[in-house]
Design a protein around this nucleic acid. Sequence first.
DNA 1: TTGAAAGCGCTAACAG
DNA 2: CTGTTAGCGCTTTCAA
Lengths: 308, 308
Amino acid sequence: MAHPTLEDVAARAGVSRALVSLVMRGSPKVRPERREAVLRAAAELGYRPNMMARGLAAGRTGIVGALLADLHDPVYAAVHDGLADEAAGDVRLLVATGRGRPARELAALDHLLDLRPDGVVLAGPRIAAAEIERAAAGCAVTVIGRALRSPRVDCVTGDDRAAVDGAIAHLSSLGHHRIACLDVGARPSPLRRACPPGTVVTDPDALWSEPVPPTAVLALGDATGTTTLTALLRAGKRVPEDVSLVVHGSPPTARAAQVTTSAVPPADLGRLAMATLLARIKDGAPARARRRTVPPRLDERATTAPPG
Amino acid sequence: MAHPTLEDVAARAGVSRALVSLVMRGSPKVRPERREAVLRAAAELGYRPNMMARGLAAGRTGIVGALLADLHDPVYAAVHDGLADEAAGDVRLLVATGRGRPARELAALDHLLDLRPDGVVLAGPRIAAAEIERAAAGCAVTVIGRALRSPRVDCVTGDDRAAVDGAIAHLSSLGHHRIACLDVGARPSPLRRACPPGTVVTDPDALWSEPVPPTAVLALGDATGTTTLTALLRAGKRVPEDVSLVVHGSPPTARAAQVTTSAVPPADLGRLAMATLLARIKDGAPARARRRTVPPRLDERATTAPPG
DNA sequence: TTGAAAGCGCTAACAG
DNA sequence: CTGTTAGCGCTTTCAA
C-alpha cells in the first residue's frame, strides 16, 4: 500500500492506534517490547507519519519557514546555515524564496503561512512592513536585516556601520591615510553613508588618475570586491604591496583568494534569529519585541599590509 | 480571532460551509453576488485556507518539494529559478537542503516527504539510490544531475561532455592548438575524462614553466575559473591577448567579468525537471521512466580570441 | 446552485 | 500502561 496509516501499523502490530501514536512521538511510557513490535511493524510497512493529519490534530506543525530574499546571494546560504545550526531537531526547516521580487516574495510567504508553521524567519524581506505585521498575527515572526518597529516582530540586524569602521580602523592602524571606498554597482550601497566623507569612488579605474592615489581600498560588497581585485590586477598593481584591499562582505571565494574581509557573518544572523524565534515559540510573546544587533568580524588575510 | 475557519467565513457571509469551500477553490458555479459576499467576509476576517486540513481532506497537497544539494553553490540557485519558472501557479514550491551532507539530506527529504507532496525534485542528490527509490514509492520523483536506472524515477542530466567538447572546438576554431584543461581543487573533477588526453593540469602556475606554454586554457568549474583568471593576471598575462580562457560553468560573475563560458545552463535543467515532474503528477507514471539530457551552451565573451 | 453528512489520519483527553 | 472517544478544518459525494 502506498501510504500506510497509523491504523495499518496498529493492526499489524496487534495493538491500538493510540499506542502506535505514543510510540511514534517517542513517549517514554510504553513497554519496550511493545515499542519494538510497533517500530518493527512500522518499518515493515514503510510507515511515515502524515504531517497534515498530525498538524491538524495537534494544532501545531513543528514547521519553521525561512523566507530567503535571494538564493543567488551567497549571504542567504550562510544565513540558512545559521538557522539550521541553531534549529533543534524537532523543527522542520522549510525554505521559500521570492527570487528578489516583492510580489513573488509575498506569494511565497503566503504559501508558507498556509502550512500553519509555528514560526517564520524573514531574511532580508522586500515586502511591505504591513504584510509582515499581518503574518505576525498568525505565528511567531523574526526578521533579519530590517528593523521594524512592530511590537510583535522580533528583529535581528547586523552592525554594518561598525564593519566599515572596523575596516577603516584596521587600515589606519597599518599606516594608511589615503583610503578609497569603492562602490561599483547599479544602485548605491547603503554602506556609503558609513564611509568617511569624500572617500567614495564608483569607478575602480578612476582611482589612479587622481593626483595622490590611495594606498588602500575598501570595497563595499562582495561583487564590488571581486570587480575591484580584478581591476587592481589588470592595472598592474600588486596587492598588498602597492595597494591594500579590504572587502566588506563574506565572499565565498574570500578564503580561497585570501582577501581580508570585514563584515557581519551572515551565519551569526541566522543563528541568533533562530534562537530568538524558538524562544518566542516556546515562551510566547515577550512584553516588547526583541531587537538584537550582531557585531561584525574582521578577518585579516593576505590583501592588507602597511603601505609600501 | 487568530485563525478563522471556513465556518467562520460562512457564518459571517450567511452561507453554508460548502459554498465557501467552492468559492475558495475558484469554482465557476457560484453566483457572482454570493461569491463576492464570501470573498468580502473572508477578507474582513483575514481568512486563509488551512493547507493541513485541505491536504488531508483532498488527498493531495499541491506541494512540490525541491531538495537542493547545496545552497552555497550558485548552480542550485539557478536550478531553483528554472523550477520556479516552469511551475504552474497552482503548485507550491518548497525548498529543503541537506547542506552537502548525505545524512542531513536524507533527513531533509524525509521532512519533505512527511508533508505528502505531490512530487519532489532532487537536485544533485548525495543520498543512496535506494533512498530515492523509496521516496518514489510515495510520490512523483525527478532527479537532476544523476542518472538512476530506476523504472519509477525520471532523470534529467546535463551533457557536460558536450560542453567540454564545445569549448575545445571553439578554441580550436580560433586557431589554438596548445590547450590546457585546468582543474584546481581538492577532488578531481569528473569532467577530466572528457578532456583530450594529456591536457589536464592542476596547478595554474605550472603552466608557464613548460617548454611550450599553452595559448588557451579551459577551466573546469566555477571555482577553478576564478582562481585561474586571478592567477593569469597575477602572472602578468593579458587575457585574451596572451592567453584565451574558457570556463566550464556559469559563474555569477562571468557576465560581469566578461568571461567566455561553456556549460549546461542549470536553469534549463530546472525547467525540464519541473516539466517532467508535472507531467508525471498529472498523467501518472509513464511506461518507462524518462531520461532527458540538456545540451550545453557556449557564451562567447571577452576572454577568447585567436592566439596572439 | 445549495446544504447535509461522512470522513481524511492523527492527537489528546479520559476512563479502564 | 492501554483502549475509547472526540474532534482538528477541509473536501466530497449525495440529495434537495
